[in-house]
Design a protein around this nucleic acid. Sequence first.
DNA 1: ATGAAAGCGCTAACAA
DNA 2: TTGTTAGCGCTTTCAT
Lengths: 339, 339
Amino acid sequence: MVTIYDIAKKANVSPMTVSRVINNSGNIRLTTRKKVEKAIKELGYVPNSAARSLTSNKTKTLGLILTDIANPFFSKIARGAEDAALDLGYRVLMSNTDEDSEKEINYIDMMISARVDGVLLAPTSDRTSSQIDRLRKHDIPVVLIDRTIEQFEGDYVVGDSYDGSRKLIEHLIMYGHQNIALINGPSNVSTARDRQRGYLETLKLNDLPIYEHYISEIDYKNVQIGNTKNIVQQLLQLEGTKRPTAIFAANNFIAISVIRALKELGLNVPKDISVVCFDEVEPVVYFDPFFTVAAQPASELGKIGVQFLVERVEHKNVEKERKIILPPDILIRKSTRKI
Amino acid sequence: MVTIYDIAKKANVSPMTVSRVINNSGNIRLTTRKKVEKAIKELGYVPNSAARSLTSNKTKTLGLILTDIANPFFSKIARGAEDAALDLGYRVLMSNTDEDSEKEINYIDMMISARVDGVLLAPTSDRTSSQIDRLRKHDIPVVLIDRTIEQFEGDYVVGDSYDGSRKLIEHLIMYGHQNIALINGPSNVSTARDRQRGYLETLKLNDLPIYEHYISEIDYKNVQIGNTKNIVQQLLQLEGTKRPTAIFAANNFIAISVIRALKELGLNVPKDISVVCFDEVEPVVYFDPFFTVAAQPASELGKIGVQFLVERVEHKNVEKERKIILPPDILIRKSTRKI
DNA sequence: ATGAAAGCGCTAACAA
DNA sequence: TTGTTAGCGCTTTCAT
């Protein structure tokens, strides 16, 4: 392996001088610099990050912990994050928790072991709180993304689940819907709570009745395997006027699963029932915009998250806590209709 | 920072003993091990990877260089790769080249600097060859994924672009199409070449004429911004019997762009014109399977790629070269019709 | 079964 | 402007 010592020997200088050239630190005579750069090029030297980290206590690496990078929403976040990291001179260590807190713990361990300079984290649930403490004990800054945690103190960058839900429900109400069901994610995730709150408050403000059996929860695993059918069936079995005319699916995957279930049950969207959801359904939208959605700026979330994180890492003078809540775009398309 | 020295002091043993416990190496008396493990837990010690790498010359990290993780095809590869890496005890450093060879060079540098144990690479073009040489000069094994490179010697895991194309074109011919256009990716990428070869040979075998103006190329940037409209327009302007009745779009993004262009030009798919493509168009397929596609096993590609890579990294006894070509699934759906 | 010494490649701190 | 020394946290090697 080529080291600074090899370069030093070849260029007839000390290793320290080589180090200075590489890092553009200190004053170097131009001729010396040229000599060193020539040697570096000739020997194809590339600095050893591990050695650097050991002395500098910096890895120039950020941890990115998402639930599933194969979900377009998260892959866009990842892309935005990676782009921002590159700009700022950082690398990204990627991981997928599958909403599994065991996996999450292991990845946190990995991040600590890797001594990443900071972690961008979409927590699996409020229980992640203790893992954040662990990171902080190791002096690793954390920025939350997409989801917050109750009583979390620190930076986060999320979409406005509450506001988006309000607007989606208001849209349905304007379209004449009075019986609106909610199929939500697990309530120990902040986005699910906020979406339910938006749903409930909008109904209340519009003097619409709230039926408990209109609200159901489904977890990640069950959405994955498309298990919304039972829920949908139960909703449709409600008698007469209580049968919902619209469904608010808490995210894109739930919506897709719901529409498939409806189809299997012989119902057409939007003719027989309207559907709205959070998150864009890509890439369909580019050729056949179908879903009425609250589209979150996923790539922005990642980008801003990394920017905030790096500011923390580099001890920039910023406020104690920065809470960014980006409004979603409400896009009225073909999955809803007036009744 | 907690080090093995802190643990050693606390447990009244030497640092070396701590190291042995952590790595399960050498013989340790059970009581000693317990003592050490207790100290580790109490102090919340996590090994420093940088220090480890420095002595062991291993980072337990793999580089993953894709073109764009926001593309569902690649995000599935990434997911498969990350899962496999986790299983095998490796971490993944992620990057996106955007098909840009400059960016690719920088990322290769990053991988060398990070001293990753191996790199899984979707090369931007055949010119990537020199970058692979660079990695190998640093003793970093490389496995190619999704695409090969002319005269590349080593492992690769790709989909069968040739076979998939043959079957897609045969399907069109069976449906009565005789005028089939190809909108391909850049010809310096192996998949594009193979798809064109499959296209041409199938036409030839079926005694169908080959028109040069049926074949066009579009690069990544232009697909991104949806610039297939010009191409589509030119195809449609062809007079009478020469006007294509079907389009073979070389990948999912091209297909989406094409369908949008067709729609803007007032044409319906499949009524007015049929469209086939490579790669699944997710997640539409789950509720409304529309595209007739050659679906590649993306997640498998990533998984096998990592398995092969790790075998190289760990010097397992395997053949000199392993060339895995996975057949795509041909899924006949609604974007094609008999004429 | 355990420990001591040396060194991985680099940079911070000090010296010249 | 350049060089010397020491040490980051760990493992390899050799000793006990």
